[in-house]
Design a protein around this nucleic acid. Sequence first.
RNA 1: GGGCCCGUAGUUUAGUGGCUAUAACGUCUCGUUUACACCGAGAAGGUCACCAGUUCGAGUCUGGUCGGGCCCACCA
Length: 823
Amino acid sequence: MAELPARYDPIEEEAKIQQWWEDAKIYEFDPADEAEIYSIDTPPPTFSGNMHIGHAFSYAQTDFIARYHRMQGKNVFYPFGVDDNGLATERLVEKEKKVSSKKMEREEFVQLCLQFVEEHRNDFVTDWKKLGISADFNVFYSTISDHARAISQRSFVHLYKDGRIKRKKSPIIFCPTCKTAIAQVEMEDVEKKSTLNYIKAQVETGEYVIYATTRPELHPGCMGLSIDEAGVYVVANRGEEQWILAKDAVEKLQDEFPMTIVRELKGKDLVGRKVEIPYAQTVAITHDTSVKTEYGTGIVYYCSYGGLDCVEWFARHPDAQPVDVMDETGCYTTGPCAGLRSAEARKKIIEQLENDGSLVKKEKIKHFVNVHERCGTDIEYIATDQWFITYMDLQEQFLQNGSELNWHPAHMQVRLDNWIKGLQWDWCISRQRHFGVPIPVWYDKKGEVILPSDDELPVDPLRDVPKGYKKEELTPEHDVLDTWATSSLTPQIATELYKDHPVFKRLFPMSLRPQAHDIITFWLFNTMVKSQLHHKKNPWKDVAISGFTLDPHGRKLSKSKGNAVHPQEVLKNYGADALRFWAAGAKLGEDFPFQEKDFVTGKKTITKLWNASKFVVMNLEDYTGFNAEFTELEVMDRWMLSKYNTLVKECAAAFDNYEYSKVKFAVEQFFWKDFCDNYLEIVKGRLYEPKDNVEKSSAQFVLSHVLEGMLKLFAPFMPYITEKIYGMLPFENKAKSIHLSSWPSYREEWHDNDAEMVGHDIVLVIEEVRKFKSANQLSMRAPVKKLTVTTKHDIRLAENDLVAVTNAEGFDHKHGEFLVVIE
RNA sequence: GGGCCCGUAGUUUAGUGGCUAUAACGUCUCGUUUACACCGAGAAGGUCACCAGUUCGAGUCUGGUCGGGCCCACCA
């Protein structure tokens, strides 16, 4: 038998082992395997760079679960995809290939992206492979591939036919400088100086309402004034005029604008009164939930569109119809400022309002405005035709679906529930971008929607023509689908890779959705929505929500703070097992600080595992088996086996409940304390100088069983070192890989209360002796003259082991309260 | 502002109403011929954030206060 090398170099060995896994196809999905399926809806990372530490953290956690279920004998379906259908990839490809997507045919750019992904796919997934992710990387998809585009477009076509998709006017975020629609992620907050303008407008009953705005240029788009119906408002005399405003506002304005309150009234008394707004139509006062009497004058004017608040207001007030005041050149189209952009328009209208006496006060303020990150221009909202999935009627259904999922951890469900309860409008799935999955729609001469048939998909309406039509008869839709409209179909995209195989029926609904908590309201919710609309059921049974990696002080990692951490460095310095061991220390869903020292601990555990295994293997050299009953084992061997047996039971229970961190903690403690510190020391006497072969083989039996089992318990966390050691164990009938071996099973007959109690006392005695030797500055091997132990249990069955491990020259046992006397 | 989570040793953490509240790292003392100095043994280190309540009993349950983190919304 080959002796184990003195040292284990994780960096060198992990590379070799990983290559072997790949060559031997250890994690290959076998669709013909009849075993129970455990399918994972793996998050497809954005194809835009390297794996970051947050990825390493959460993918490792999913991998613990996957490996456990694989060892439980399940047929694990663990695909890997990349999300290249989005802005990040678009930007990356534009930069790397030095092209502009807008100047190309869309299909051409899609092909370029696919080519780019193909070229870099191996590099991209390398980090995940190094980390030891046990996905089958050949069960692979890309969200911009034909496969995924066809599924995404099919979803659109089917939902349209079901009456779930509608086209309607809706505001989009627009950059007047770049003259383009932009995505929310392309905006940033900038604090700017501005002016809050107080404006008066006459009510039909003669008084004036006072409202404040930072966007007076939008007066022509004003469609309503709102108050808080529960708020307290007043009518106040101000010179000849009577002003209406919130009571709170009177106090603030009193110094500058002395007025006397005539009477108080409730906000609801104002509802319905008509007000003549300058440069706009006459509008009625309404109640709105967002209005607070403490801010401004307690009266708000809403325009199409001053900001997101206005957009939301229109959603709450369907009677008020937005008007288009700005066109796609960023200029106003109506009113006194027609032809002007916002900045000039504001100046002009303030002048005019001042001239006709409507402007009562200008207050300098600082506030945050959204600007386009590329050019710094204030963004605008303009109304355009957009595509929506209508689902507001399904809120109850979605809540029900959410409650039917098994949430790990449970409290994450609350986030989804709050989101669903707060939904205000339908899901806008169209984007005015060039790159993406095209909306599969043409319009005929009458403007009717023409759809492709399923077998034509995927299509690009800009280039393709549906069956039975000529190009000149149709106008193509230019918009593309929001990336969430496609990524919400990952269960279908992944499982339909096996569409033509009988296993397909068994893959969906999937077993597990693993993901982080930041996108519960997006990816998780949207995937549930699509599954409900298409299949009338949830796409998975369980969800496992992982947390974030934080910096060593518990703050969020970010590029701007300069506290980013690179997993590649950790892999290079400590290896994947150490990185994974760190990730296993965090409870599922818990945010976890990144600490260098944790990797040192991981690496030390690896070394310890190596050394302890080396010891066991060396001492199994002459082992030929222990052919007797459990009860014939030495008492300390039964103690060890019984404790190990309990551990096995606990670990499976915790893993079944996605509590991998409990498993990690329990196994680590058992290995270090019970197995190494105590058991290995206890059996040394019997191994080195056995009285007979029986007491030695008794120890060997337990050493071999417990080592093998412990390696398996460690295997989901540290797949490399456990694979290496497993391969060197001198057993027959081993599995090809530890990761294909079966999870240890609990054995009732190995449970031994008596042995556990004796063992417990023996360990306490050993501790006392060690304390004594430490206190007397003696070596642990130093002999003690006489050891007198008083215990309640009869420990004499373990006397030989105890004498050997403590190196006692004399020993006496008495019955009574626990006491150790060392001479 | 709304929601969720978290406050336990110098640091990071375990803890399912019940023995003397975990462990790792760090610190201090000691110890190397038979797995391991990439080590072992031992020690010190705690107002379980604070206040009140429920209970025979609270780190654990309830309410409040303070502090931290994340997500969402953000000002007319």
